[in-house]
Design a protein around this nucleic acid. Structure first.
Length: 371
DNA sequence: CGGTAACCTGGGAT
DNA sequence: AATCCCAGGTTAC
């Protein structure tokens, strides 16, 4: 189970050193040793309170639910992951408050600020859910069971490459692939057997070849990664800057811009927009959301196939129901739909969609949703 | 423009 | 044991 640690053979030579102290570090193995030595010299960090309660941030409904694949569960109520160049653990205390521990960082004050930003803490989840609940009785019904399911504000580059791995894929393999990409970045530290890395810059990502990615099991997504790195590097001012600048645009332009990148279609674009570009009304329409929509929102579309046009119909339906933060509502509804989370809901709220039994009986399909 | 078939891979079902 | 199907899609006809 704890078999991670892809070691891509990336030439560390031609890469411009992000920081001077990396210049003399030839292999990633050596880098790791060095980082460990550094870490052991720095003063031990301690758990500190984060000023949010469980209703604003519930870790199991925020990290392992598909918006990021870089965080790992490292304890009963603890999750650990990188935030920029910092490595941070978060955990719930018995009173449901949240504490954080900075494992490594060159600047602890900065780490706290970056963490709060990453967690989108300026946005009040309780207030949003209040309005969702008054707009939709089903949301009101499931809300008490999904409290603290928060939308993150990730780094755009990190978010983009994670979701580039997600197309037509399953969680386990996406996690493995993201782990491979992550290991191209600076090693941070090992916690509970998991190796953590700062997510690689575009310059680092540029050093990996399509063949190496294919060997690592990326399949046809290998050429998407390579192509997107190249496309970004050709942007005036740099790809990272170009991506970040999308934060100031309106959603349609953001989607349009992202979709020019190879491997990025409407769904992946919406994920990046929502999870990293402040596009709170973006609705990633995947198979799960399609299920929700055709069941609860647009029953007349039941049985139809998911085309780009219908994709935007669904997004519109969500926005007209939940408003400017529809993406946050969608996230909660989506989580309620995930098999592992369904057990959180009482059975009368848990619409088991038994696809296999429905398929094969076309007549049933039409009937089921027209209510 | 809307509908379809490939596209890599690994795990689970048949 | 051999196939088939599918998984948080995108792309090319």
């Amino acid at each position: 189970m704890k078999r991670r640690r892809p070691m891509p053979s990336v030439p560390a030579a031609s890469s411009p050193p992000p920081t001077p102290r990396n210049r003399t570090l030839p292999s990633s193995k050596t880098r790791k040793r060095f980082a460990q030595a550094l870490a052991s010299e720095s003063p031990p960090s301690t758990w500190q309170p984060l000023t949010v309660g469980r209703r604003e941030l519930f870790l199991p409904l925020t990290f392992p639910t598909g918006q990021t694949f870089t965080w790992k569960q490292t304890g009963a109520t603890t999750f650990t992951g990188p935030v920029n160049s910092h490595l941070i653990s978060l955990r719930h205390l018995p009173d449901d408050s949240v504490s954080f521990l900075i494992h490594c960082s060159s600047d602890h004050r900065r780490a706290v600020a970056d963490l709060r930003d990453y967690l989108n803490l300026d946005i009040s989840l309780a207030e949003l859910w209040e309005s969702f609940s008054s707009a939709d009785s089903r949301f009101a019904a499931i809300a008490p069971y999904l409290g603290g399911a928060r939308v993150l504000r990730q780094d755009p580059v990190e978010c983009l490459f994670q979701f580039l791995c997600s197309s037509n894929n399953n969680i386990a393999r996406i996690t493995k692939m993201v782990g491979f990409l992550a290991a191209l970045g600076n090693y941070l530290r090992t916690v509970d057997g998991f190796d953590f890395y700062e997510f690689p810059s575009l310059e680092r990502l540029e050093l990996v070849s399509e063949q190496e990615l294919r060997n690592a099991g990326f399949g046809y997504r290998a050429k998407y990664i390579i192509g997107t790195v190249k496309a970004l590097q050709s942007k005036p001012g740099g790809g990272a800057h170009w991506l970040a600048s999308l934060r100031d645009l309106e959603l349609p332009e953001v989607i349009e811009g992202l979709c020019t990148l190879p491997g990025v279609g409407p769904k992946v674009a919406a994920c990046i927009a929502l999870f990293s570009l402040d596009q709170h009304q973006a609705i990633p329409v995947d198979t799960h959301v399609w299920q929700i929509a055709t069941r609860d929102l647009l029953p007349e579309l039941a049985g139809a196939r998911l085309t780009p046009t219908l994709c935007s119909r669904v997004a519109e339906a969500f926005v007209s129901k939940y408003g400017k933060f529809a993406g946050w509502a969608q996230t909660a509804l989506f989580i309620g739909e995930l098999p592992p989370q369904k057990t959180l809901l009482p059975s009368h709220l848990c619409h088991i969609k038994d696809i296999k039994s429905i398929r094969g009986k076309e007549s049933v399909k039409k009937k089921v949703t027209t209510e």
